[in-house]
Amino acid sequence: MASLKFDNVYIKDSFSIAGPLESEGKIRKYDLTMDDYYYQEKTFLDAEIRMQKVVIDNLLYKNKMAKKIDVLIGGDLSNQMTITSFSAKNFEIPLLGVYSACATFAESLLLAATMIDGGKMKNAITMTSSHNLNAERQFRFPIEYGAPKNGTTTFTATGAVGAIITNEESKIKIEAATIGNVVDFDQKDASHMGAVMTPAAIEVFIKHLNDLKRNAEYYDVILTGDLGAIGSTILKECLKTNYGINLKNHMDAGCEIFLESQEVYSGSSGPVTLPLVLFNKILKNPKYKRILLIATGSLHSKDTTNQKKSIPSIAHAISLEVKA
């Protein structure tokens, strides 16, 4: 079975850094904000490495856990995941680098929860980051090139988020998770990520509900990340026509970071989008007790898009329970 239930895994603390545009968006309060994209470094690559380092440093310092972390699990969007490796070399913590594009944070949470619940480890840090200009260079055009974009494009968010996962009881419990398959619905447009990733989100969502014998109303909020505005519409329509589910308690992380006036087309994307919204909006609101995260990732590279291959996608679901 692809769904796992956990008895003894909790989120102890989190730390978020948001980029200059993000901090002027819908969520105004982050732990730390950046004034510019360089973050006092010479290149954007160095900036993102520093962002990750600051996140880990703060988590360790705030919780006085410098020597207590058993494993660091995380990833980013750069080639060969260099940013995560380069930031992790500053710490004496064993590293597991993971990649599932924008579902990276969910994958690291899932792995950390499984290890801790199995009793093999006690404390882990899960972490991810993305930087708009590094992603532009990686997946699109040179940074200063102004290619006209259509309305379906999403804008990679800049930020880094880390969380301490532990077996000590706290308010936020990681209750269950469902690992998703890679699905391919023959979508080829890399500027329409919502359409690419929606089938993966639906697949894991239905599997999660069936495995745990729940319905969509069980959750106070279902947070997808990051389908964007157009992807969210496709998701709701698909669930209604194919499964008869009328999704009312849905929120998409891609639509929660930027204001419409910030001209980010279909919304925000990047692995950091979902955890930014989760830790700075959803978990700050006491009305959400049962939270389902569905993190979606588009698994393409520039080469596969140039060779006109269809884009596979993946999604993982994680259920959180918040105690009053």
């Binding site: 379906t152 619905f185 979508q187 329409h192 359409a195 089938p199 496709i234 026509t241």
Partner: peptide, 23 residues
């Protein structure tokens, strides 16, 4: 979910670019 049906749905729900205005 059927692939062809999904493609149709995506096409239907994706806002069209205003090519005339762009031109």
């Amino acid at each position: 979910m059927d692939k062809d049906e999904y493609k149709k749905l995506v096409k239907q729900l994706t806002p069209k670019e205003n090519k005339g205005k762009n031109a």
